[in-house]
Design a protein around this nucleic acid. Sequence first.
DNA 1: GTAATTTCGTACCGTTTCGTACATATTTAG
DNA 2: CTAAATATGTACGAAACGGTACGAAATTAC
Lengths: 203, 203
Amino acid sequence: MTESPRKRGRPASIDTQSAMHAVVELFRDKGYAAVSLDDLSETTGLSRPSLYRAFGNKLSMYVSAMNAFGQDAAELALPKLEAEGDLEAALTNFFDAMLGIYYRDSDVAPGCLIFGTAPAHVDEAEIKARLNFGIDQVDSRMRQRMEKAFPNCESSRIETAARMASNTLIAFSARAKAGATQQDLSEIGAESAQTIGLLLRSA
Amino acid sequence: MTESPRKRGRPASIDTQSAMHAVVELFRDKGYAAVSLDDLSETTGLSRPSLYRAFGNKLSMYVSAMNAFGQDAAELALPKLEAEGDLEAALTNFFDAMLGIYYRDSDVAPGCLIFGTAPAHVDEAEIKARLNFGIDQVDSRMRQRMEKAFPNCESSRIETAARMASNTLIAFSARAKAGATQQDLSEIGAESAQTIGLLLRSA
DNA sequence: GTAATTTCGTACCGTTTCGTACATATTTAG
DNA sequence: CTAAATATGTACGAAACGGTACGAAATTAC
């Protein structure tokens, strides 16, 4: 696996990984329909046919971007949620990690590719399915984390708490796009974490 | 005001109000960029130049649609929030009224024009500003209602509770678009209302 | 060297896009 | 009945769109 068998023809000179990164950022900024293949070609540095060969048509490019973004976010933020310690701290740290992604470094927050821009494009079945998967993932991870923290809590209460935590994250994307500051949302996240803890502890 | 002074030229034969309604529904379904003027022309029955004369260019059409949608939603749902009685019931009824709008009647939920599709298009400054206004409105109405219900509660706690309630509503749009059923969200709304009540009552 | 193989971008195609010029229709003023 | 005024849709234009055919470039196999 480490040694490439040296294929036959002209060697590939394209960095698909960094190209996908640029694709993610552009879709995050402008949504799906508002981004043209020429825009993508410009930011990636790849010609339009190269984009095609690497990622397929525009729709599959967007779905790939959703997958790449989701994976990055999971790797960066999920460990915070699943860390040992009390639930409130884990939730707070998880929210902050996600906010770090939502706000990137620019002045204008690009927000979440999945929760922020995908809902506008669910008439494409593949996008809708991937959005649903993303929501489901967050819901179930939240639920698992809460079950771990409160093994004796009744499941319906866990379910409610998990949905509320997910709702917080989902709403953050819209708030970020609307112009809220990262500090604002960080505070809301911390306080929501406390409240959810309150709910779960009030047996 | 009742008697029209009978203007000079050809009388207008276009129902701009029902046309705007059709515009709202189409933008709600497909977002901003994915909708063409021809699409709008088809669903409204107005020719493209007529749309132009009535509502200006595509961007101002979308902003007008946001205003129309926001006003409709406010008239239908805000009375539920501001009704007398305990906060939990008011919140629950408000969420249900909004869900009635989000799910319209079709199989595929069109969700919220403001919270659901606008975040994907905030690179247009006017859309971003209108989205921010919408979030602000919900936040402040929530806060006012909670202050009325709990006049002695400290303001920071009110603030948190209000943001959580808003977050619930904002997230509903994404969940609706992703395929959640109206009953699902209705239950989440009711339980979130209970939890927010719990937070405010735990002095 | 030459042929086979793979990668890559130029140049092109048909369609769709937004926006408008302009002719036509329908009314009131005189 | 004629002229002025207002409303409306046909028909057009320039640009941008997604997508691809095809030739040039770069490598290995022999």
